[in-house]
Design a protein around this nucleic acid. Structure first.
Length: 574
DNA sequence: GCCGTTTTCGGCCCGACTGTTTTCAGTCG
């Protein structure tokens, strides 16, 4: 069976080559392919098995694209794509990735200078042949030379894991907020949507005085190059190679600017189309009817004026959220609804860095009703605790409980799932815990079949309440384990074991895509921080955002339950 | 190439910045 990912790859290639052929990245045909990609990405199951009639029901897929998909599934290739590929070989196409080079310029370079690949482009640049072409000049030539030098062929698709981008974005936003005239500075774009990887950082600044902001950004010590700087917008490259775009808007237009710069692009296009359908115009400056402003100050105003509920940023991917918001069918989940943290280490674990007392105090200060203290079990020999140590740990927890009448302390454990699905301790000892999360920490390279069996065996144990960080991935560093996801979700749904939404930004595991499928199959979720230090507790906001991104509502999330209901649920399998 | 509580044909989001020009094309988001 051909995966959706491969079909999406085929369509993306078709879009790229068509853009070259039509000399425009936004020709109608190119956008049609992109719309089809968007529609298929939102499709919950494999589409290789669908016939022509079913395919055209997918939003953005018409007769022509549907038959290309059928051709691809049946023969492994697409005639139209083969024809285009013959005219635009991969070594030529990849030049599109160089910043500053678009389809028009590339076509000119090819016809006028015989540029066919990176080699011949470098050669032409060295000969200073670009500066004499129509529409180009010395400056353009030098810019292209710098782009090649600095980023080579990875310029436009260079992606940064969100954990890195988030800290840069939040840090810079804080600094800009301190400038005179600035009322707010907010990271927008894919950082705000909590995408797993980030192309560049967008920061929206509300200020009555743009100039000092432009100056502060261009002159920032972390900045190595100013890509562009105008009256209200400055783009720079940081030392770590991240591109940062800062845009200043008037405070009364902040809502419109946030909508626009948060995106996604596909969401914006759909939103603007909705505005047009209502006889309005939406831009980053506001929602207008003719000359008059209908809404601009807050995002809620804009969405309301378009007849929509406020859509949380993580859901803004044009995957059905506008339709749901219009019908009042959006799932609702807010950080304030979370009543407890259920994956949570102290220095009882070898890798924990805060004491039991510090961790419990931190949870209490957040107003939680319950926490599960889940230090590692004995199978993780370096980080874990044996039976005796765990019983002593329990005694300390019960003692500490006396000081916290309004915070229920659950004696928990993060069990290690061995390569064949075995767990720490013995069945009776495991049942002494109030709460167990079971997770994979090693043997990441077994087959999908072995991994699936492993997880299914673990979740069959009556002590297990949740499966922690399902795939074990670290975004951008380590891929997750291979799984038969349908089988695992089925196992979770049947057993009543919850799927953890891990709020650690370098994990975001389960992924939003997995969460959305889990929600559709009525799998219960727990949102947890996997904290190893008191400062990690704030990750709950990321966990909630990722759950939103996976269309989870409060009803799907077990740790929105009041303490008594939660404890009853946790004990129900034992 | 797709789509339709204005349309089965005629539309398809909107604007900043740059470098090239002297009113605009290309790129990018």
């Amino acid at each position: 069976m051909i995966s959706n990912a491969r079909i999406l790859g085929m369509l993306a290639e078709l879009a790229r080559l068509t853009a070259l052929d039509e000399e425009s990245l936004q020709s109608f045909k190119v956008r049609a392919y992109e719309n089809a990609i968007n529609g298929i990405e939102g499709h919950p199951s494999d589409i290789a098995g669908l016939g022509q009639a079913e395919l055209v029901k997918i939003k953005g897929v018409g007769a022509s694209i549907a038959s290309k998909i059928r051709e691809y599934v049946e023969t492994g290739k697409v005639t139209k794509l083969e024809e285009l590929a013959a005219r635009y070989p991969p070594r030529f196409v990849e030049l599109l990735k160089i910043p500053g080079l678009g389809p028009k310029t590339l076509k000119t370079l090819r016809s006028e200078l015989g540029v066919e690949d990176l080699e011949s482009l470098k050669d032409a640049v060295e000969r200073q042949a670009l500066r004499d072409l129509p529409g180009l000049g010395k400056i353009s030539e030098e810019k292209i030379a710098r782009s090649i030098e600095r980023l080579g062929l990875h310029g436009k698709d260079r992606r940064t894991p969100i954990v890195e981008a988030m800290s840069v974005a939040a840090g810079l936003a804080r600094e800009l907020e301190g400038l005179p005239g600035v009322t707010s500075a907010t990271p927008a774009g894919s950082v705000r949507r909590l995408a797993e990887t980030i192309g560049d950082i967008d920061i929206v600044v509300a200020s009555t005085d743009p100039l000092p902001v432009m100056g502060a950004v261009a002159g920032h010590p972390e900045v190595t190059e100013v890509i562009g700087s105008g009256d209200t917008k400055t783009s720079v490259l940081t030392r770590s190679g991240l591109q940062v775009d800062v845009r200043v808007v008037a405070p009364e237009q902040l809502g419109a600017a946030l909508v626009y710069f948060t995106g996604s692009k596909a969401h914006n296009v759909a939103l603007r189309q909705r505005a047009i359908d209502q006889g309005l115009l939406l831009s980053e400056y506001g929602l207008f009817e003719g000359e008059s402003v209908i809404a601009a100050a807050t995002e809620a105003d804009i969405y309301a004026a378009l007849g929509l509920e406020l859509i949380p940023p993580p859901m803004r991917e044009n995957s059905g959220e506008i339709k749901a918001a219009a019908a009042g069918d959006l799932p609702h989940l807010r950080l304030e609804q979370i009543r407890g943290d259920l994956h949570y280490h102290t220095d009882q674990s070898g890798d924990g860095r805060s004491s039991l007392e510090e961790m419990v105090e931190a949870a209490a200060s957040l107003g939680y009703e319950y926490v599960a203290i889940t230090d590692h079990g004995e199978d993780l020999t370096i980080n874990g605790s044996d039976r005796t140590q765990m019983r002593e740990h329990l005694a300390r927890i019960r003692k500490l409980q006396e000081r916290y009448p309004n915070l229920r302390l659950l004696f928990g454990c993060e069990l290690n799932i061995g390569p064949s699905g075995t767990l720490d301790y013995d069945p009776d000892f495991r049942l002494e815990f109030d709460w167990c999360v079971a997770s994979v920490h090693s043997h990441f390279d077994l087959s999908a079949e072995q991994q699936t069996t492993r997880i299914l065996r673990a979740l069959a144990d009556p002590a297990v309440n949740a499966i922690g960080h399902l795939t074990g991935r670290y975004i951008g560093r380590r891929p997750g384990i291979e799984l038969n996801l349908d089988a695992v979700l089925e196992g979770l749904a049947v057993s009543g074991v919850a799927l953890e939404v891990n709020g650690a930004l370098d994990r975001l595991d389960a992924s939003a895509e997995v969460i959305r499928r889990a929600v559709a199959q009525q799998v219960k979720l727990v949102i947890s921080t996997d904290s190893h230090h008191t400062s990690d507790l704030r990750r709950m906001a990321y966990g909630v955002a990722n759950a939103q991104r996976g269309w989870a509502g409060a009803d799907d999330v077990v740790n929105t339950l009041p303490v008594d209901e939660f404890v009853a649920w946790a004990g129900s399998r034992r």
